[in-house]
Design a protein around this nucleic acid. Structure first.
Length: 593
RNA sequence: GGCCCCGUCGUCUAGCGGCCCAGGACGCCGCCCUCUCAAGGCGGUAGCGGGGGUUCGAAUCCCCUCGGGGCUACCA
């Protein structure tokens, strides 16, 4: 077979023409059906979230409500196909189709990180979009580990990856820990498969031995007056047996390269529409190293093919490698491996502070940082979803279940997006306020524990304090670590007063204020916020004729140690009479330094 | 250098030829509420990179240009 057969390689368009899709979509936007905050429950675990998603899909009644994904009412038919080529308006009875039909039409996407270092937020965004796509279509989300680089991969990173995804609640249907029909899901355990595929490709002439070193390639370019940085020149394609033998006797070992057809490469990208690469711009690429280890551009498509992946959603940085993947799929089919080419969708880059793509190097990209700061998984995920996707033109806080129901890959923006910590925190704050108070307390407790403020498990008294403070702090923080700082004064035996706050409001002027407060509070028969408020106002505002903000500042700092605190009266009630009085008295007579 | 992708408020986005002298969100500013800080409510600030076309009409379609980014490994 002549691998250079002159066919123009055009992917079968799974994707409906993007423009026509958009056109249809533009008619009659659905305006109703928005949910209020109270209607948006949170699913604390991945499993529960998954249930909710499935439930939602089952309830997805287009005729009655319009399609939330495409936002137009009443026009959808059951056979309507989305821009990704998959029926998105599934009716409940789809679930009762025969097993084989379901398998044939099922969406299968994958998330395939390599275990090198901390997962970063760009990676999480990719995982999220794949997850949402799978859940939206009722398909499978496959988790595969691409650990073909022994020098950089680590078991620790692998564990971190699993842990991170679990924490996020992005549940997978097949993966290294739970197995699945295409196991194993770690590429380091699939070497025999790759060896076998490579052998067959070699026998078929799809792949050939190449001995050229980088220096030799460059030298040839120079000699021919070409740009030396052009890359491999396909020089070794027609090496004779005698030539390869000669190299071997010199002790040189070959890499294996795939023969690329020299055609124009075109496909309809799920997020970008038609993309094409000019003929002759993609050289034969290395499939296997001299030491016999297969490389990413090979194992990735091979596993996608073998695992029946239907849609590849990945970062834009991988866009230039798509022609090679398409070529590999074609070669695989020629040697008899069933490998329908998947649809590709290239997600925009997530940028860091500059304009550069977010690198693993910069700490702000590390997922663990956001976890430590006290981001809620649903808050972080919600923000990340906004980097390239919008659920509606007038709303940006939503649950993952809502995202799964509404997600449409064709509506993903192709612009790169900058990660904005302030907005991420703001979105997270909205999610904190959406939590039930008990849930907020439960999520907060581990942070209080690792700050050493609450024991493990919490004592009854500590639990009561957390529960009592929850409503006070939940509405004033955007991340959980802020709540820890705000609640610290409730749990410490010895209050450390912030020096700046003390300097500001605990000067000589504060003495009469504090004294009056102590006297008034000491006379109280009941210790609750209403009584405290009454006493303080009577003594300070009415008695001393102070402006409220002047009156309460010294008391606040004396009790909480900070100028910023939860509401004063409630805080004092929670702190208790004894500790509150002790702190006021301590502020009155500061210990000599 | 070559190949490819992308350009709407500071940032993320809505926009798919008339609904747009461009809507939402974060940020910022102001007001209200108020014991601080928040939250919440109300109001404001700010944008179609530039130039040519096509069209009765362009943020939207085409071309050029400028700018930004990615890839260019026997990493993934």
């Amino acid at each position: 077979m002549d691998p250079r057969e002159g066919l123009r390689l055009v992917l079968p368009d799974r994707a409906v023409d993007r423009d026509s899709t958009r056109h249809r979509r533009s008619r009659g936007a659905l305006r109703g059906g928005r949910r209020t905050a109270a209607e948006r429950p949170h699913q604390p675990t991945g499993a529960q979230r998954r249930d909710a998603d499935l439930l939602r899909l089952a309830r997805h009644d287009v005729a009655a409500r319009g399609c939330p994904a495409h936002r137009y009412a009443g026009r959808c038919r059951a056979d309507h196909r989305g821009a990704d080529g998959v029926g998105v308006h599934r009716r409940p009875r789809d679930a009762h189709q025969s097993r084989s039909r379901r398998l044939m039409s099922a969406v299968r996407v994958r998330f395939c990180p390599s275990p090198t270092g901390n997962p970063h937020v760009g990676l999480v965004r990719t995982a999220l979009f794949n997850w949402a796509f799978a859940r939206h279509h009722g398909g499978a989300f496959v988790f595969r580990i691409e650990d073909t680089d022994a020098a950089r991969d680590s078991e620790e990173s692998y564990e971190q990856l699993l842990d991170s995804l679990r924490w996020l609640g992005l549940d997978w249907d097949e993966g290294p820990d739970i197995g699945g029909p295409f196991a194993p899901y770690r590429q380091s355990e699939r070497r025999e498969i790759y060896d076998d595929v490579v052998r067959r490709l070699l026998e078929a002439g799809e792949v050939y031995e190449s001995f050229s070193s980088a220096e030799e390639i460059e030298a040839r370019h120079r000699a021919a007056g070409r740009d030396p940085k052009l890359g491999y020149d396909n020089h070794d394609r027609e090496l004779t047996r005698a030539q390869t033998d000669a190299f071997r006797t010199e002790g040189r070992l070959p890499v294996l390269r795939l023969r690329m057809p020299e055609d124009e490469w075109t496909w309809t990208d799920l997020v970008r529409g038609p993309v094409s690469f000019a003929a002759g711009t993609v050289p034969d690429f290395v499939v296997m190293r001299t030491n016999g280890e297969p490389l990413y551009p090979f194992v990735n498509p091979v596993d996608d093919a073998l695992m029946g992946i239907t849609h590849v959603l990945r970062g834009e940085d991988l866009l230039p490698s798509t022609p090679r993947q398409i070529a590999l799929y074609a070669a695989l089919r020629r040697i008899g491996i069933a490998a329908p080419t998947p649809s590709f969708g290239h997600l925009p880059m997530v940028r860091g502070d500059g304009n550069k793509k977010l690198s693993k190097r910069v700490p702000e990209s590390s997922l663990s940082l956001y976890r430590e700061r006290g981001f809620l998984p649903e808050g972080l995920l919600n923000y990340l979803a906004l980097l390239g996707w919008a659920i509606a033109d007038d709303r940006d806080v939503f649950s993952m279940a809502e995202m799964a129901a509404a997600f449409d890959i064709a509506r993903v923006s192709s612009n790169p997006a900058r990660f904005d910590l302030a907005k991420a925190a703001a979105i997270n704050g909205s999610h904190i306020r959406l939590l039930l108070l008990e849930e907020f307390a439960a999520r907060l407790t581990p942070y209080l524990q690792s700050a050493g403020l609450v024991s493990m498990p919490p004592t009854d008294a500590e639990a009561a304090l957390v529960a009592g403070a929850a409503p006070l702090v939940a509405e004033r923080v955007s991340v959980l670590s802020e709540a820890v700082d705000m609640m610290r004064f409730l749990f410490v035996a010895e209050l450390v007063v912030d020096p700046a706050a003390a300097a500001k409001v605990l000067g000589p002027d504060a003495e009469p204020v504090l004294r009056a407060a102590v006297d008034a509070l000491a006379a109280l028969s009941t210790w609750d916020s209403a009584a405290i408020e009454g006493a303080l106002k009577a003594a300070l505002v009415d008695g001393l004729e102070l402006k409220p903000r002047k009156a309460f500042a010294p008391v606040r700092v004396a009790v909480s140690g900070r100028t910023v605190s939860p509401p004063l009266y409630e805080s004092m009630e929670l702190l208790g009479r004894d500790r509150s009085m002790a702190r006021l008295r301590a502020a009155l007579s500061p210990p000599p330094v």
